Simulated assay, not measured.
Amino acid sequence: MSSLEVIGVDFSSRPSRRKPVVVAQGRATGATVKLEALLTFETLEGFGALLKHPGPWVGGFDFPFGLPRELVEHLGWPTEWLKLMRHYAALERAQIRDTFAAFCNARPVGRKFAHRECDAPAGSSTSMKWVNPPVAYMLHAGVPLLLEAGVHLPGLLEGDRARVALEAYPGLLAWELIGRRSYKNDDAAKHTPERLIARKDIVAALEQGRTRLNLRLKLTPAQHDALIADASGDRLDAVLCLLQAAWAGGREDWGLPAGFDPVEGWIVSAPRAG
């Protein structure tokens, strides 16, 4: 039976020793995904070098690959994905914050932010949020690394088809397993027993294959303990993205719905509403 190298990425737009980019490396064989390593990168340059690692591999990346079309058209930005991403990458963070804040301030309460079509079914934040979580900055830092590496972005941009990058979202899979229970927090004061139990429940479900992805995670005892012990959830999030990438790797369409909006992108394994 053939196997496929897969990676899952918990991303930080400004990685550091305290908050690195975390990469889960593994191998998918049939319905089993074996975790082989957990890597950390304290610089974007170091992480970018990993993306140039020869394929074949499929990766799930926890940052948005696109912006809401409503926002893009309102601002008069390019509606061709590559031109849009290059325009966006050329902006400073302060410009992004001020532009998005002005957009929100002009809109009524309850409709401040524009959303992508995939946000509701995935339960994700809009990619224009600049705080809590700052996914707008994650897009700003992450997509240029993918472009520089020349990876293939299905439905968005042709690249090296031996290295496939997909937008993932760990919360989508986690909440399918444990509901909306919180399982992580970067604040040490909020490392509660309840969040520890939630991580234990997620890991147990993944090892037993109790997900709609029909994949079973294979861990060593040390890996099992490390995922549960990491109260920030970064290692567990990387593994959740790993499983989403493995699920997509077994499909001709990479788990993406036909005709999704190329301005917005799509979160792998998220169902299409309706």
Score class of each variant (00 low, 15 high):
Ser3Tyr: 02
Val9Arg: 04
Val9Asp: 05
Phe11Cys: 01
Phe11Met: 02
Ser13Thr: 09
Lys19Gly: 02
Gly26Leu: 04
Thr29Phe: 00
Glu36Cys: 09
Glu36His: 06
Ala37Phe: 07
Leu38Ile: 14
Leu39Arg: 15
Leu44Gly: 00
Glu45Gln: 13
Gly48Ser: 02
Leu50Arg: 09
Pro56Trp: 11
Gly60Pro: 05
Leu71Glu: 03
Leu71Val: 05
Val72His: 01
Glu73Val: 07
Pro78Ala: 08
Glu80Met: 02
Lys83Phe: 06
Ala89Phe: 10
Ala102Gly: 11
Val109Thr: 14
Arg111Glu: 15
Phe113Lys: 14
Glu117Leu: 12
Glu117Trp: 09
Ala120Leu: 14
Ala122Cys: 06
Gly123Leu: 11
Asn132His: 13
Tyr137Asp: 03
Glu148Pro: 01
Glu148His: 02
Ala149Thr: 10
Leu153Asp: 01
Val164Pro: 03
Leu166Phe: 07
Ala168Gly: 10
Gly171Pro: 08
Gly171Thr: 12
Trp175Tyr: 14
Gly179Ile: 10
Ser182Lys: 15
Ser182Asn: 14
Lys184Arg: 15
Ala188Ser: 14
Thr192Met: 05
Glu194Pro: 03
Val203Cys: 04
Ala204Glu: 15
Leu206Trp: 09
Gln208Trp: 12
Gln208His: 13
Thr211Lys: 12
Arg212Phe: 11
Leu213Gln: 09
Leu215Asp: 01
Ala222Tyr: 11
Asp225Trp: 12
Asp225Cys: 09
Ala231Gly: 03
Ala231Cys: 07
Gly233Trp: 07
Arg235Val: 01
Val239Gly: 07
Leu243Gln: 09
Pro262Val: 12
Trp266Val: 04
Trp266Glu: 04
Ile267Asn: 00
Ala270Gln: 04
